Simulated scan of single mutants.
Amino acid sequence: MNNASSMSADAISLCAYSKINIHLKVLAKRKDGFHNLESIFQRISIADYLSLEKSSDLHGCTVESPLLPLPAENTLTKAWEVFKGATGINGGIKVRLIKNLPVGSGLGAGSSDAAALLKVVNELFAMPLSDSELTTLALQVGSDVPFFLKDPAGVVTGRGEVFEPIQARTDCFGILIWPDVQSSTKEAYSLLDKQREVLSGEYEAWGYEKLVAQYCAPFKTWRFVNDFQPVLEQRYPVIAQVRKELHEQGAEFAQMSGSGSAVFGLFSSKNLMASAFQCLAKRWSWCQPFLLLA
């Protein structure tokens, strides 16, 4: 869960933790144009940092992001507009965002930032919106946003709005590498849809029970998939190279997250992870250790 680190009557600072997709099946396309999904999401210890402050001089949302310039319209401003439209509040906010996570990495950072904003403004403006109502607003911002209002790990289905929690595992140590490739969700879906026009793919969902049984099994026996991974590795071979190097350094499981392009590796011990990190950090400029959150 997004944890507030400091709070006052008119300002809150907090972490917006990212996630990895341990499993990701892209299922049939829906009538609304979205695809149904089946995924296991788990929050990890790498985060963006936000400070939000009420402003009587503003009616909108101004965002200061000193480490990474953002477009005028972004997930934070969109979340604010959705919240304001639902509540009719008369006021505004200032947001300072310390952006630690790269854009186009498949880690849900923008979605986590938006979910953090929704939770905070609900507190700052003393609104009585329930968790269910916040989830409805979150889905209007983006398909991944509702997850970041939920428990740290779970099976996500639908277009992202259906969440079934699972007991989060924390018995491993991770390394996350972003190979400096910005992979957009739109591009990933386009590549996958084109492939499926000529190749028959496996569209069936695994189901909650099979996913949980596999999740509880030893990491080295995991057979989880990411349907985006093959087409993205073909388009960007460096993603496959990262995954290969993680395995070579002792990762028991390594996979691309989301629609790419970040790749994570899970190690059975802290010493194994530390040794691998020492080597991989020399090869990849964006390489960070992480923990699974519970």
Rank of each mutant, 00 (worst) to 15 (best):
D48M: 09
A276R: 01
D171C: 01
Y215F: 04
V141Y: 10
A294T: 02
K220I: 09
A138M: 06
V63G: 06
E245T: 08
L101Q: 08
S184I: 01
I166L: 06
F228A: 03
A262Y: 06
L293K: 02
L191P: 07
V181R: 03
Y189C: 12
D171V: 01
Y17D: 15
T170F: 12
L149E: 04
A294S: 12
Q167R: 14
E209R: 00
Q255N: 02
W178E: 06
L232T: 13
E248I: 00
P66D: 00
Q229M: 11
M7P: 07
L14W: 00
N36T: 09
P146M: 13
D131Y: 09
L149H: 05
L211N: 00
E38K: 09
E164K: 05
Q249Y: 10
A126R: 14
P218L: 14
G258L: 11
L101R: 11
L117K: 07
V212M: 05
P218K: 13
C172P: 03
L37V: 13
V26S: 09
N3Y: 15
W206S: 15
E38W: 03
E252N: 00
P179W: 05
I93A: 07
A138F: 10
Q214Y: 14
T157A: 13
S39Y: 10
E81G: 14
F253S: 05
V120H: 00
Q241N: 05
L52S: 08
H35V: 03
Q288M: 15
V212P: 03
L124E: 11
V103A: 14
L58R: 12
A254E: 08
G85L: 06
N74L: 12
D113N: 15
R196V: 10
A86H: 01
H23G: 04
P152N: 11
N122E: 01
A28F: 03
S132F: 05
E204R: 01
G258M: 05
M273C: 13
L70S: 15
A138K: 08
W206F: 13
